[in-house]
């Protein structure tokens, strides 16, 4: 990895919610390079701006000022429709609370995404990646939290996205299940060379990343580069 190209190039990114006295500065001029094929972990206290950053990278939210480039494309200049296409074609999401459709089975939840993607894995393959082939016809209510999160990951990777954005993917899970989920993310990164961004509270998670970005008060405070990534099985919190 001599000079890998960038997945995201973030410059002077600012996000302000509300206005006047009630204005909240979520991001105050963030500069960050996210490299392709790496696992990047975003760490920071509640309110440090990590979710806002992830949402803007994912095209779920818009910036107040500054720029975000995905490859050559400037996300901050995109219209709503262009953002929709960007999300559809390039980004996979994993949320803390899985956000599965309760009325669809595991297979169908994945299908929800393969339906609109350009060159997706089949839902079966995606479930195979997360090791849930035998649970494909179960509804979310019939699955444990870890299983639900793995379905969410399968759903996210099924479209073969360039980047996988994960907002507290282990936040609602116990550490054993959490490790299993992290292992799946690591596998995806290695098998599909997907760039993975993970938001987490758990500092130990930083050990499995290529790069750990520490945010505080809407700014990048520190970036730690791990020369050697740990395996998901090796970490604990």
């Amino acid at each position: 990895m001599d000079s890998p190209s960038l997945a995201f190039k973030v410059r002077d990114l600012t996000k302000i919610y509300g206005s006047g006295v009630s204005a909240v500065h979520a991001l105050r001029g963030v500069d960050l390079d996210v490299r392709e094929g790496e696992i990047t972990v975003l760490l920071g206290a509640s309110g440090s701006g990590k979710s806002t950053l992830l949402n803007i990278l994912g095209g779920l939210d818009t910036a107040t000022a500054g720029s975000v480039h995905f490859g050559r494309e400037n996300l901050t200049a995109m219209s709503d429709d262009e953002l929709t296409l960007y999300r559809r074609n390039h980004v996979g999401f994993v949320f803390q609370f899985y956000n599965l459709m309760p009325s669809l089975t595991a297979f169908e939840n994945v299908e929800l995404v393969t339906e609109i993607a350009t060159s997706p894995l089949s839902p079966g393959e995606a479930l195979d990646v997360v090791g849930l082939t035998e649970r494909r016809d179960h509804f979310p209510a019939q699955m444990s939290g870890g299983e639900q999160q793995r379905v969410a990951i399968a759903r996210a990777i099924a479209k073969q996205p360039e980047v996988l954005l994960c907002d507290e993917p282990t936040g609602a899970l116990d550490s054993k299940t959490g490790r299993m989920v992290l292992k799946v993310l690591q596998d995806v990164n290695e098998r599909l060379s997907t760039s993975v961004l993970i938001i987490t509270h758990a500092a130990a998670t930083a050990d499995l990343a290529d790069r750990a970005v520490y945010l505080a008060d809407g700014r990048v405070k520190d970036i730690v580069v791990n020369e050697e990534r740990k395996r998901a099985e090796e970490i604990s919190w």
Binding site: D81, N89, M101, V113, I116
Partner: peptide, 9 residues
Amino acid sequence: LLKAFGYSN
């Protein structure tokens, strides 16, 4: 969520 997946309006 549907919008997050890239479904159009």
